[in-house]
Design a protein around this nucleic acid. Structure first.
Length: 875
DNA sequence: GCGATCAGCGG
DNA sequence: CTTTCGCTGATCGCA
């Protein structure tokens, strides 16, 4: 049975506004109407569990009713600004809940609601109309009830025909007659003077309709009343007309589009947080989360010995690892769900079973997982090969919408309307308290997880196909996860002794620097504490305060550099910072994660995190090993091949993002520049400053480079001003000049924003998507950010697509050619391999060829490659 | 033991 | 008032 809720948005917002004191959040935004609206909404959702929902709003000031009666709604107080500023927030709220909202020029919310309720009624849907306006009662029928607010906002009363009869003694369709007679001061509907509710009802009980009253006016008792009725005949009829809800509003919605159900819980909670609806955040976290929902019964078997019947294809599979870091981690257990049943298999039972191990490595046995790489790698460490991964729910969820910060199975289940399951955190606990629960609890949880994967596979693939992302999913990200898994498991060899030697050197130099700094300061303090350092510099030494953070003085490097002339201590501090960073993050950090026996580092690439499609690397992050300063670059000397005599080979795309930009903007100037393999920053300087190549100064090139940098990373004029040390205005002018020099780029920037606003998302060459709802935000910062994102994501994302494609292709080539060379790392535009000496020449040819031909663009892709004994030497 | 804050590395 | 991101480490206040 379908159940449609129709909400009179304006009416409820008004009610909420006047019912509640003027709350505001710490940014000074009034939120009381939003709050009231939200509580009402949550209550309705919880109590009514609607399948469909719509909130209607009044559109402009005038409606078709004004043609009938100019003074319609005349004399009304203007909407207080404290309320009108809350409407955009209410809209945002509804969007977060994925509730359709609708307004239409010339019509009131009532008319929209009336039209849709009639429509739904025809389909025999149950309809609930929510409003504070009694006018709506005219819509009540066998299928339609009207919920009116009584006092406050959540105190409501549901009107069906019986209740209307009880209260007024009339039928719903007589409400308009009642209004016609008695009028409505709030809408400035005149009615018949002297007739109030009592008289109106009395007349209607006797005559049924206004028309009948007027026709039989002679039978009306009371001389005065009779006169008034005759005198105001036209006015009464007009008033009835005004009060009549128009039920044939032209609209372009189908009832199905009003479907309510899936929405982004995170988005809602984050909006609540922004609005400071603390109680709602709490209530929401527990009240709507899967944890509190009653879980349906689910039968399953605990496998004691793996038999044929436990293994089928396709099968949803859970390989549970509690440690966040899955390298060399313990497996808590397995679950399999397929057509033959649902099973929990204890770790040992599975791993000692030849049947299971054979099934796992059989690529014809299709497995569906969440985070396949995790499963593959953890089993790999136990020498169990997992092949035949046919579907990865994590990748699917990420590609469909990368914006979700959690791709925890319970969150995906909630979002996608699958059977709800408990969050891992609720089952295992978090932080130090995280532990494996008793077997029964664990088994059930894992089986439920596998069950959800099984349930969602088709739906997710359909969604991917609908978005034309299936190829991206199946031919790029899925194979890539296998490649990444191998890279992670292989690891990178580290010369630990060298690392330690560098550490000792750094430690002694740091001690020396510390001594100097304390002497200069005349006091011993912790240099690593920005708080203490700030006190010393700005209070004790009285240096000028250049920038403040929200908790105190800023002591960041750019601030310190400005103070370098003022005091000798600054140089030492900067140097201390530099060495300290190297020592703690890179030396100590890397030593800590280097495997004792093998001297290898196993990072993890997160393939489902960034909004642009880039990878990230953790535990440790091997994508930010120093290179710019020689001192730091030396760290790379410690990254060595894992086998004697092998080489490290590094291949990086030259200016891949700007080449991608040239391609998508189809900018002839840029395309030519790349075809001729010019130095792109020099070229940009030439174009922006209108000078010839010889006249480009280093300052010009630096500025041009910063602008190019800004284009690639989507920074603001403020960001550019910071990086160039100029004013925001000057930075804005630079950008302007850049865009004037490359009109096609300017056109692209405008086009992509427009397109994103229309579609709600931007996409990359290979159809990766990023949704940008903030493009319509009323908040300048949010909107500007979304606009820069719209411009930048197709560029950075396409570059990510390209290198990912090259990686998959490369893995294939290595296998086909039976090469021993191994891909070790990816650093956004760079691939690092280790290569046996006899393959170096071959690889120096193959790698650039594969990378440069990963896709075909309007410009050539260029790859620089070099080999050396260490990562440092591969430059 | 945890989260917030500041700082700094890479692309 | 806040302006590429993602990751890590040190400090500090709080429980």
């Amino acid at each position: 049975m379908k159940k449609l809720i129709l909400i009179d948005g304006n009416s409820i917002a008004y009610r909420a506004f006047f019912a509640l004191p003027l709350l505001n959040n710490d940014k000074g935004v009034y939120t009381n109407a939003v709050y009231g609206f939200t509580t009402m909404l949550l209550k309705i959702i919880q109590e009514e569990k609607p399948s469909h929902m719509l909130v209607a709003f009044d559109a402009g000031k005038t409606t078709f009713r004004h043609k009938t009666y100019e003074e319609y709604k005349g004399g009304r107080q203007k909407t207080p600004p404290e309320l009108s500023e809350q409407f955009p927030l209410i809209r945002e709220l509804l969007d977060a809940f994925n509730i359709k909202r609708f307004e239409l020029d010339n019509y009131e919310a009532d008319d929209i609601i009336g039209t849709l309720s009639k429509e739904a009624e025809k389909e025999k849907w149950e309809v609930k109309v929510v409003s504070g306006d009694k006018d709506l009662l005219q819509l009540v029928s066998d299928y339609v009830t009207v919920v009116l607010t009584k006092k406050g906002i959540t105190n409501v009363e549901s009107y069906d025909e019986a209740l209307i009869d009880e209260k007024y003694g009339i039928k719903p369709n007589q409400i308009i007659d009642m209004k016609g007679l008695m009028g409505d001061s709030s809408d400035n509907i005149p009615g018949v003077p002297g007739v109030g509710e009592k008289t109106a009802l009395k007349l209607l009980k006797q005559f049924g309709t206004i028309e009948n009253v007027l026709d039989s006016v002679d039978d009306v008792s009371g001389k005065k009343l009779k006169e008034k009725l005759i005198e105001n005949k036209e006015q009464a009829l007009m008033s009835k007309e005004l009060a009549t809800i128009f039920t044939e509003v032209p609209y372009n919605l189908t009832l199905d589009e009003l479907k309510f159900g899936e929405y982004d819980e995170e988005k809602v909670v984050s909006l609540f947080k922004e609005l400071e609806f603390k109680s709602l955040v709490d209530q929401f976290d527990t009240g709507v989360s899967a944890a509190e929902k009653e879980l349906e019964e689910l039968s399953f078997d605990v496998v004691e010995e793996v038999k044929e019947e436990h293994l089928a294809t396709p099968a949803a599979m859970v390989v549970e690892v509690l440690d966040e870091n899955y390298h060399q981690a313990d497996i808590a257990g397995f679950a399999l769900v397929h057509e033959k049943g649902r099973y929990f298999i204890p770790t040992e039972t599975a791993l000692r079973s030849d049947l299971f191990v054979e099934w796992a490595k059989d690529e014809t046995k299709k497995k569906w997982l969440l985070d396949a790489k995790r499963g593959v790698v953890v089993l790999g460490w136990k020498d169990v090969l997992l092949d035949g991964v046919d579907f990865d729910l994590l990748m699917a969820s990420y590609l469909l919408d990368p914006s979700h910060s959690s791709h925890d199975l319970s969150d995906i289940a909630t979002r996608k309307g699958a059977k709800s399951i408990q969050a891992d955190e609720a089952v295992y606990g978090k932080g130090a308290k995280r532990k494996v629960p008793e077997t029964g609890v664990l088994a059930e949880h894992l089986v439920r997880k596998a069950n959800v994967i099984y349930e969602l596979k088709e739906q997710m693939e359909e969604e991917l196909k609908k978005n034309e992302q299936f190829k991206l999913f199946k031919d790029l990200e899925m194979p890539l996860s296998v490649v990444l898994g191998r890279m992670e498991t292989e690891g990178v060899k580290v010369d630990i002794d060298q690392l330690k030697a560098m550490g000792e050197d750094l430690a002694s130099r740091l001690a020396e620097l510390e001594k100097h700094i304390h002497e200069h300061a005349g006091v011993s303090f912790n240099i690593n504490s920005p708080k203490q350092l700030g006190e010393v510099l700005f209070e004790k030494l009285g240096l000028p305060v250049i920038k403040k953070t929200k908790t105190g003085y800023s002591t960041s490097a750019d601030v310190l550099e400005k103070l370098a002339e003022d005091h000798e201590i600054i140089r030492h501090i900067l140097h201390y910072r530099q060495l300290g960073k190297l020592n703690s993050t890179y030396i100590e950090g890397l030593v800590k994660v280097t495997h004792k026996d093998t001297s290898k580092i196993h990072t993890r690439f997160n393939q489902a995190l960034t909004q642009t499609g880039r990878l990230s690397s953790t535990d440790p992050n091997l994508q930010n090993i120093p290179i710019r300063l020689e001192e730091g670059r030396k760290i790379r000397k410690a990254f060595i091949p894992s086998e004697e005599g092998w080489k490290i080979l590094a291949a990086d795309y030259s200016q891949i993002e700007l080449r991608v930009l040239a391609h998508i903007a189809q900018d002839e100037k840029l395309i030519t520049a790349f075809k001729e393999d010019m130095d792109i920053h020099t070229k940009t300087a030439m174009d922006v400053f209108h000078v010839s190549e010889e006249d480009v100064t280093s300052m010009m090139r630096r500025s041009a480079k910063a602008v190019n940098f800004g284009i690639v990373y989507g920074i603001s004029d403020y960001g550019l001003s910071q990086s160039l040390g100029i004013t925001r205005k000057e930075a804005a002018k630079f950008i302007e000049r850049y865009l004037a020099s490359y009109p096609n780029v300017a056109e692209y920037m405008e086009r992509i924003i427009e397109e994103a606003r229309e579609n709600g998302y931007v996409s990359t060459l290979l159809n990766r998507r990023r949704y940008l709802p903030e493009l319509t935000s009323r908040n300048f910062n949010q909107r500007s950010f979304a606009e820069r994102t719209a411009m930048n994501t197709p560029i950075q994302g396409t570059a990510a697509d390209i290198i990912k494609k090259a990686m998959v292709e490369m893995a294939l080539r290595l296998e086909e050619a039976n090469l021993k060379s191994r891909l070790l790392l990816q650093v956004h535009d760079e691939l690092i391999f280790e290569v046996p000496p006899e393959e170096v020449d071959k690889m120096m040819k193959i790698v650039p060829e594969v990378m440069e031909n990963a896709v075909e663009l309007a410009v050539p892709l260029k790859v620089d490659i070099s080999a050396g004994d260490t990562w440092y030497d591969a430059k």
